[in-house]
Amino acid sequence: MKVIFLKDVKGKGKKGEIKNVADGYARNFLFKQGLAIEATPANLKALE
Rank of each mutant, 00 (worst) to 15 (best):
M1V: 14
M1D: 04
M1F: 09
M1Y: 09
M1E: 05
M1P: 04
M1T: 13
M1K: 10
M1L: 14
K2L: 10
K2M: 15
K2H: 08
K2R: 14
K2P: 08
K2E: 11
V3Q: 00
V3D: 00
V3M: 04
V3E: 00
V3Y: 00
V3S: 00
V3P: 01
V3F: 01
I4W: 03
I4D: 00
I4V: 10
I4G: 00
I4Q: 02
I4F: 08
F5M: 04
F5E: 00
F5G: 00
F5W: 03
F5L: 08
F5Q: 00
F5I: 01
F5Y: 07
F5P: 00
L6R: 02
L6G: 01
L6N: 01
L6W: 02
L6A: 02
L6H: 01
L6D: 00
K7R: 14
K7S: 12
K7E: 11
K7V: 15
K7I: 11
K7L: 11
K7Q: 13
K7F: 14
K7M: 12
D8W: 07
D8A: 07
D8N: 10
D8Y: 07
D8R: 06
D8H: 09
D8L: 05
V9L: 06
V9T: 03
V9A: 04
V9Q: 01
V9G: 01
V9F: 05
K10W: 14
K10F: 13
K10L: 13
K10I: 13
K10N: 12
K10H: 12
K10E: 13
K10S: 11
K10T: 11
K10G: 08
G11W: 08
G11H: 07
G11Y: 08
G11K: 05
G11L: 04
G11Q: 05
G11D: 08
G11P: 03
K12N: 11
K12S: 13
K12H: 15
K12Q: 15
K12F: 14
K12M: 15
K12E: 12
K12V: 15
K12I: 15
K12G: 14
K12D: 08
K12L: 15
G13H: 13
G13R: 02
G13W: 14
G13M: 04
G13I: 06
G13A: 12
G13L: 02
K14Y: 12
K14D: 06
K14H: 12
K14A: 10
K14L: 12
K14W: 09
K14T: 10
K14P: 01
K14F: 13
K15S: 07
K15Y: 06
K15N: 04
K15I: 10
K15T: 09
K15R: 12
K15L: 08
K15H: 02
G16Y: 08
G16E: 01
G16W: 10
G16Q: 02
G16D: 06
G16F: 10
G16I: 00
G16L: 07
E17K: 03
E17Y: 03
E17M: 07
E17L: 03
E17V: 04
E17G: 02
E17T: 06
E17I: 04
E17H: 05
I18G: 01
I18T: 07
I18R: 02
I18P: 01
I18M: 06
I18V: 11
I18Q: 05
I18D: 01
I18N: 01
I18H: 03
I18Y: 03
K19F: 05
K19I: 12
K19P: 00
K19M: 13
K19N: 04
K19D: 03
K19Y: 08
N20T: 15
N20F: 15
N20D: 13
N20I: 15
N20G: 09
N20P: 06
N20Y: 15
N20K: 12
N20W: 15
N20A: 12
N20S: 14
N20E: 15
V21Y: 06
V21F: 08
V21R: 00
V21M: 10
V21L: 06
V21T: 04
V21E: 03
A22M: 10
A22Q: 13
A22D: 15
A22E: 10
A22G: 11
A22K: 12
A22L: 12
A22N: 15
A22H: 12
D23S: 15
D23R: 13
D23I: 15
D23P: 15
D23F: 13
D23H: 13
D23V: 14
D23K: 14
D23L: 15
D23E: 15
G24Y: 14
G24I: 13
G24P: 13
G24R: 12
G24Q: 14
G24K: 11
G24A: 15
G24W: 15
G24H: 15
Y25L: 09
Y25I: 09
Y25A: 05
Y25D: 07
Y25W: 08
Y25N: 07
Y25T: 07
Y25E: 11
Y25G: 07
Y25M: 05
A26F: 14
A26T: 09
A26V: 11
A26H: 05
A26S: 05
A26R: 02
A26L: 12
A26I: 11
A26W: 12
R27V: 14
R27I: 14
R27Q: 10
R27A: 10
R27E: 10
R27L: 15
R27S: 08
R27D: 05
R27P: 02
R27T: 11
R27N: 10
N28T: 10
N28I: 09
N28Q: 11
N28L: 14
N28P: 01
N28D: 14
N28E: 15
F29K: 09
F29P: 02
F29I: 14
F29T: 07
F29W: 10
F29S: 06
F29Y: 14
F29A: 06
L30N: 00
L30S: 00
L30D: 01
L30H: 01
L30T: 00
L30I: 02
L30F: 02
L30M: 04
L30V: 00
L30Y: 05
L30P: 01
F31R: 01
F31E: 03
F31D: 01
F31A: 02
F31S: 02
F31L: 13
K32L: 12
K32S: 11
K32T: 13
K32E: 11
K32G: 07
K32Y: 08
K32P: 14
K32H: 09
K32D: 09
K32I: 14
Q33H: 15
Q33K: 14
Q33T: 11
Q33G: 08
Q33I: 09
Q33P: 02
Q33N: 15
Q33Y: 15
Q33R: 15
Q33V: 11
G34L: 08
G34P: 00
G34Q: 09
G34T: 03
G34V: 03
G34E: 05
G34A: 07
G34M: 08
L35P: 00
L35V: 06
L35T: 03
L35Q: 04
L35D: 03
L35S: 04
L35I: 08
L35Y: 11
L35E: 03
L35M: 09
A36M: 01
A36S: 02
A36Q: 00
A36E: 02
A36H: 01
A36K: 01
A36V: 07
A36P: 00
A36L: 02
I37R: 04
I37L: 09
I37M: 11
I37H: 04
I37G: 01
I37T: 06
I37F: 03
I37N: 03
I37Y: 02
I37A: 08
I37V: 14
E38M: 10
E38P: 10
E38H: 07
E38R: 07
E38N: 04
E38F: 05
E38A: 10
A39M: 06
A39H: 06
A39Y: 08
A39V: 05
A39W: 07
A39I: 03
A39S: 04
A39K: 02
A39D: 02
A39N: 03
A39T: 02
A39Q: 02
A39F: 07
T40M: 03
T40P: 03
T40A: 03
T40H: 04
T40R: 02
T40I: 05
T40F: 03
T40Q: 02
T40V: 05
P41E: 14
P41T: 07
P41F: 08
P41I: 10
P41M: 11
P41Q: 08
P41H: 11
P41Y: 11
A42D: 13
A42S: 11
A42L: 08
A42W: 04
A42E: 15
A42F: 07
A42H: 09
A42G: 11
A42M: 07
N43S: 07
N43G: 04
N43A: 10
N43D: 06
N43V: 08
N43L: 07
N43R: 05
N43Q: 06
N43K: 04
N43H: 05
N43Y: 06
L44Q: 06
L44D: 04
L44S: 04
L44K: 04
L44I: 13
L44V: 08
L44T: 06
L44R: 04
L44W: 03
L44N: 03
L44H: 04
K45G: 07
K45E: 14
K45R: 09
K45T: 05
K45P: 05
K45D: 11
K45I: 08
K45M: 14
K45N: 13
K45S: 13
A46M: 13
A46K: 12
A46I: 12
A46E: 11
A46S: 10
A46V: 10
A46P: 06
A46N: 12
L47E: 07
L47D: 05
L47R: 05
L47Y: 14
L47W: 15
L47S: 07
L47A: 08
L47I: 11
L47F: 14
L47N: 08
L47H: 11
L47M: 13
L47G: 05
L47K: 05
E48Q: 13
E48N: 07
E48A: 15
E48Y: 13
E48R: 06
E48H: 08
